[in-house]
């Protein structure tokens, strides 16, 4: 029996979409029994959403005022305690999971496999390295706990309809007060979430300015897509950092991806290689983005985007 504990990411009383993907990954371990850990200030709603995920047998709910906003240093000792009796502890490869899970692993004295894209057995996993230029198969020791982060672009969300039990847990764990949350500034908009959107429109350096980047936003809104950006566009200040797609930004897998004015550096391609259909628009016919695009259109984006909008 492989007993997997999935650490739930959540905000504003809502379960993050990454959790259902972690559950799918956990369910692909042989003979898996899956629990979800919800650490919140008041997490009843999140816990009941987690309990509906198919394949989950129980949800462990820890309500504590220190748990929101989430701080890795505060959550890690609690997750480490909840991990007792589990063979695997999974979290998403989002900034939440990337921050938290290695801290949990170190407290458990366990190794961590980052960015699991495939499960071959309870100990064997495939993960990307070198910006996705190589896929590594690793084997973890069978006699120790294992921590992993799940590359969410590689997994389908677990279905709903489950009926797991929710158990409230009180932990006797000392929590540090050396780390304090001050603020978060998020570009609030009504667009779909970049990491889980079915359609994404990304703009690159060729947009030339933050004002011109509004063309990307307008086109995205027209087709109901999330907005992304290349590193070059973010570095140039055309788009905020949380929109960066690529090796060190977000790894995404939409049904339809538009790369507009993006040349296609390998680090960017790493972030989109699981997209179902890639459309590239670029002035430079030699741009590497055309090597991976399903549909390429060579030309000036400032002329082509309005034309495409008119045709839709």
């Amino acid at each position: 029996m492989n007993r997997v504990l999935v650490v739930a990411e959540h905000a504003d009383g809502r379960l993050n979409a990454s959790v259902a993907k972690c559950v799918s990954c956990a369910a692909s371990l042989p003979d898996a029994e899956i629990g979800i850990a919800v650490l919140a200030a008041s997490g009843a709603a999140v816990a009941s959403a987690a309990a509906e995920l198919s394949g989950v047998s129980r949800v462990l709910l820890v309500d504590h005022p220190a748990n929101e906003p989430a701080l890795a240093a505060v959550l890690a000792p609690q997750v480490a305690r909840l991990a007792e009796g589990h063979t695997h502890v999974f979290g998403p490869s989002t900034t939440f999971g990337k921050d938290l899970m290695p801290r949990v692993a170190a407290l458990l004295g366990a190794p961590q496999v980052s960015d699991v894209m495939a499960v071959l057995s309870a100990q064997r996993f495939r993960r990307p390295v070198y910006a996705g230029n190589a896929i590594l198969t690793v084997e973890a020791p069978a006699d120790r706990q294992l921590v992993a982060t799940v590359r969410i672009a590689s997994w389908q969300a677990a279905a709903g309809g489950g009926r797991a039990t929710v158990e409230r847990v009180t932990l006797d764990v000392a929590l540090p007060n050396h780390t304090r949350f001050l603020s978060v500034t998020a570009a609030s908009n009504d667009r779909p979430d970049l990491q889980t959107a079915a359609r994404v429109v990304s703009g690159g350096r060729a947009l030339g300015s933050a004002e011109n980047f509004a063309l990307i936003q307008r086109f995205a809104d027209r087709i109901g897509a999330a907005v992304g950006a290349s590193r070059a566009a973010v570095d140039a200040g055309y788009a905020p950092n949380e929109l960066q797609v690529g090796q060190t930004g977000k790894i995404i897998a939409p049904e339809l991806y538009f790369a507009i004015g993006i040349s296609g550096a390998i680090q960017h391609l790493t972030g989109i290689k699981d997209a179902r259909t890639i459309v590239a628009i670029n002035k430079d016919a030699e741009a590497p983005i055309f090597e991976v695009a399903d549909y390429g259109l060579v030309g000036d984006l400032f002329t082509l985007l309005p034309e495409i909008e008119r045709q839709l």
């Binding site: 190589a134 198969t137 690793v138 020791p141 090597e291 399903d294 549909y295 045709q311």
Partner: peptide, 24 residues
């Protein structure tokens, strides 16, 4: 090391697609 490296493989390549001539 805790993790045994079994093998490195090149990533699966995407099929190169087609160039279309215009927006339409």
């Amino acid at each position: 090391p805790d993790l045994k490296v079994l093998k490195f493989e090149p990533p699966p390549q995407r099929q190169k697609g087609i160039l279309v001539k215009d927006a339409a």
